[in-house]
Design a protein around this nucleic acid. Structure first.
Lengths: 150, 150
DNA sequence: ATAGGTGCAAAACTTTTGCGTCAAG
DNA sequence: CTTGACGCAAAAGTTTTGCACCTAT
């Protein structure tokens, strides 16, 4: 909003943006760090975090606050939706038209609505297989939000 | 989810569930801890985490993985939607009918869809006021597009 | 030149885990 | 009794921050 401060295009920032736009998985800050490190071996993780924050602030990238504990970033800043695997937390694009945004309910008075978030939840192919396997060996997952299909 | 293991209703678990169902804000694990601590001063934060995980696993409460870095929990396990303030991260209920779930796009083959998540994003009344104020004193937000108050 | 940006290291948080002990069923 | 659960403390993992030095503009 009203960004009245110079944003310099440093080498680090440029590389981060380039690398992020190059991939279509939705990396975490740490994964971006690893990607960028191949071109800028001395970059700091703090710099990556700072830049992801700034770039998403000015709308050059998208910050995915959907995905549970760990944030993910998307080089595609255009509005689109995702699906998240409840098993491994992987995020993939869901190519689909914008959904019919429902009427904003009255209960949200006071609130100034800027948009909405939508994502499918489910299990990716890999995790389904893993689940089918452990089904036999009665091991179960207590881990992650992966509290199984319900 | 084939829960083939006994789940004991301990005093701690009972109190956590009770306290969570009592409130309609959507507390973080830490906030639940503070609430419960008034009745069980010796409870451990780890116990709170473990129980929130278990209770959401068996569907007694809802784990909100929407809200950015920090998870929130909802004593109302019935499916319903929320709105989240991008300023202070507060989460409120949006009383509304279930949305028309869009067709699952082909791009999501392989994926076994179990459901979807939807939430409005925007700014709550408090944060709007705070924004209007800092507008004058040209302080700007370098942070998030909106890391105001809290 | 100036002030935004960087790297490094340490701090701040949030969440999970190992382990000895306790208590629900 | 048995075994799931607890409390504690320590670990793990993610994100932020202070500071002195750079470097785009």
């Amino acid at each position: 909003m009203t960004d009245n401060q110079h944003i310099r295009m440093t080498r680090q920032r440029k590389v981060i943006l380039e690398e992020l736009c190059k991939v279509c998985n939705h990396p975490t800050a740490d994964q971006v760090y690893e990607m960028v490190r191949k071109r800028l071996p001395h970059i700091s993780l703090a710099t990556v975090y700072r830049n992801l924050e700034i770039l998403s602030g000015i709308g050059s990238i998208m910050k995915l606050e959907f995905a549970g504990a760990q944030r993910r970033y998307d080089g595609n800043a255009a509005p689109h939706y995702h699906a998240r695997c409840q098993g491994c937390d992987k995020v993939v694009d869901a190519h689909m038209p914008p959904i019919d945004v429902p009427q904003v309910p009255e209960s949200l008075n006071g609130f100034f609505i800027t948009g909405h978030q939508f994502e499918f939840t489910g299990y990716c192919e890999d995790c389904r297989k893993a689940m089918a396997d452990s089904e036999k060996s009665r091991d179960s997952f207590h881990k992650t939000g992966a509290s199984l299909p319900h």
